[in-house]
Nucleic acid binder design. Structure first.
Lengths: 201, 201
DNA sequence: TATAAATTAGTACAATGTACTAAATTGCAC
DNA sequence: GTGCAATTTAGTACATTGTACTAATTTATA
């Protein structure tokens, strides 16, 4: 394991536990038992750490989506995919608490719009395929609204979870939010699709 | 206008524009043309400023809800009420970017659970009344889900707005998010209720 | 007028992010 | 094994920040 990835891992752990602003670069170095100078050799600025962690998060998301796309459309597998996306976000929750700094680097050093564009494109494709496969039908609820909802949900839930349920464990948080999102799917699931929802409710 | 309220106003403006962490206590004092010592006379810690602003936000929300409750249930008025709630959150957006610090004071010096409890109670009452008055009917979409959705939405939207649309003006942001929430109401609006939704879509 | 509240100006301190240097160690291609 | 580059250490330095404190002055108010 390279020092660089050890740094990323430890920094993320500290960010998750104590928050980004409560974690200084000297704290990270101490936790790794390396010198602060060495840390700044790999990451000149604290922001670079943030960016690297965000890239890691983005990469994780891409992989999860790609894997879903690799097989035939299936509502049950899509819900599992969403669950994996939530877990990935939870694993990187520490950086989402630094909204202030996130906002500062978005558009400059980190292309957030790209994440967002991809997300919506994936969701759109997936929902359309699930419509064709007969798992979903959009009559009462508009497809474009469901895309909006899913995009909104996936962007926000982790922030709300950190604020509202800081004491809950990952597993509890996951069931809570999966249940929430599946309730929305229940609006558009066909009889065929209903079966996939059960295990989440 | 008291110095205390001038401080609150200026601090909030700076927080909204540059973020909480980018705004130092010395900046606030300079913007007000008062001495830093004077500022710390009114607010010993920066956190106290945050708490005072949150109280102001909470108070604003309470007033908006109370005013709605003062008249007969009406879907159109409820949507206007939601719009006012969004505006109040937007006016205090600066502090919501300080998630890290918010999380630190929640449960200790600021009763966030109370805000949340009230919010859900209000929403519950309002929806039940609107069901009785025949504006809403809960068949395909569960009432408890709509409560979850509205609570979730009202907690999160401002954070997502600050991250995703930092360049948009208040008016544009408001129409975007009102449109989003009204789409969900469309699921449960009766024929009578439909009329209220039109102006937001 | 007297007392309290408010305000100013200044100092101090620990912690932080950032930047830099010089020397030592390690890894690796030749 | 030698030599070079990458890595790591240790240390210094600086501006900024939140916080805390003092003494003196001004303002408001009973």
């Amino acid at each position: 394991m390279t020092t660089r990835s050890r740094i990323l891992q430890t920094a993320l752990t500290l960010f998750n536990e104590h928050g980004m602003y409560q974690t200084g670069v000297r704290d990270i170095a101490r936790a790794l038992d390396i010198s602060p100078g060495n840390l700044s050799y790999h990451f000149a600025r604290k922001e670079d750490l943030l960016i690297a962690i965000l890239d890691q998060y983005k990469h994780g998301n891409d992989e999860i989506y790609q894997e879903y796309m690799h097989f035939e459309p299936d509502l049950e597998r899509y819900l599992q995919t969403i669950s994996r996306l939530l877990k990935n976000a939870f694993a990187h929750r520490g950086v989402f608490l630094g909204l202030d700094e996130l906002r500062a680097i978005f558009g400059k050093e980190y292309d957030y719009a790209d994440v967002e564009r991809k997300r919506r494109a994936f969701i759109d494709t997936i929902l359309s395929d699930l419509e064709k496969s007969g798992d979903l039908e959009f009559s009462t609820l508009d497809k474009s609204f469901l895309i909006d909802f899913l995009a909104f949900f996936q962007r926000c839930w982790i922030m709300e979870a950190m604020i509202s349920y800081p004491h809950l464990e990952e597993h509890q948080i996951m069931t809570r939010y999966m249940r929430f999102v599946v309730m929305q799917f229940a609006q558009v699931a066909t009889l065929k699709g209903q079966g996939a929802l059960g295990r989440w409710l």
